[in-house]
């Protein structure tokens, strides 16, 4: 079903050539980050501009790290991401399991409801959320952020898990029931291990989403000691009178590289994951 030609080398070249402009645009921001983060301070606002600095100013990272207490932001981001992912899985697995294994009266309504929650964006609810947590007296803490972010990511996770779960033949569980295992035990011992790839992909998805979340955190978090990475970077870039782009880009790099690495490692599951419902 080759679209172009049957010769693999020529086809490969053609494919790469066609993708090249997009790939270049994707890599461009990374080049900007690296090029800027490694410059000395007086080589930022220069004209004509250049890609390579006169020397590698690696001290930008340590200067930035200490001047804004970046370690706290890293820990905050980790905390929110891990808590959110845990909550999404904890709540999402039973939902997806119910949808894939049971027939119940409210099934369609629940699916529609999930769909709606997926369609609503945090920004539309930002004001309402803020007033809600004010009313609960639970503002300026990372826990509500984790809960809210989890709620907004639930629908997508349930959908992904559901697609996977549907591919797992129920004969396997039934065989376990016949062997005398309780439903719960078969869920934990037989079903979940089979669903492990699905769980890790879903977890990764949620992790990346939460790690990058901005609007909810901007609305619910007040003090800088609770800033997550996107908020810290945003704050750095909103300095009024002086923009230290070399520090900002260093901060962006630190926040981005680990997640990008994780993403590179896990992205191969993405396509399989989203199509899982289709195969078999």
């Amino acid at each position: 079903m080759g679209l172009f030609t049957r010769s693999r080398p020529i086809r490969s070249l053609l494919c790469w050539l066609l993708l090249a402009p997009l790939i270049a645009l994707n890599l461009f921001p990374f080049a900007v980050m690296l090029s800027t983060a490694l410059r000395p301070r007086d080589e930022i606002f220069i004209n004509p501009q250049r890609w390579l600095p006169s020397r590698l100013a690696v001290e930008n990272f340590s200067d930035m790290w200490t001047s804004v207490d970046y370690g706290t932001a890293v820990l905050n981001s980790l905390y929110v991401a891990v808590a959110s992912v845990a909550l999404v899985l904890l709540v999402g697995i039973p939902s997806a399991y119910a949808l894939s294994r049971y027939d119940f009266r409210w099934k369609r309504k629940y699916q529609l409801f999930l769909l709606i929650t997926q369609m609503v964006s945090p920004i539309v609810l930002a004001l309402g959320l803020f007033r809600l947590f004010v009313w609960l007296g639970w503002i300026d803490s990372l826990d509500p952020v984790a809960i809210v972010v989890a709620a907004f990511n639930l629908a997508f996770s349930v959908m992904m898990l559901f697609n996977y779960f549907s591919t797992i033949p129920r004969d396997i569980e039934e065989a376990a029931w016949i062997d005398g295992a309780s439903a719960t035990a078969s869920l934990i011992r037989i079903f979940l291990p089979l669903a492990l790839p699905a769980l890790s992909v879903t977890a990764m998805f949620t992790f990346v989403e939460v790690w990058n979340e901005f609007v909810i955190t901007l609305t619910l978090v007040r003090s800088s000691e609770h800033f997550t990475l996107p908020l810290e970077v945003h704050a750095l870039a909103s300095n009024l009178y002086e923009l230290k782009w070399h520090h900002i880009m260093a901060a962006v790099l630190v926040a981005t590289l680990p997640v990008t690495a994780l993403f590179m490692w896990l992205q191969r599951y993405l396509v399989g994951g989203m199509a899982a419902g289709a195969v078999k």
Partner: peptide
């Protein structure tokens, strides 16, 4: 002393 930094804009 708990410092809360926020930009002038916000």
């Amino acid at each position: 002393l708990v410092l809360e930094f926020t930009s002038w804009e916000t």
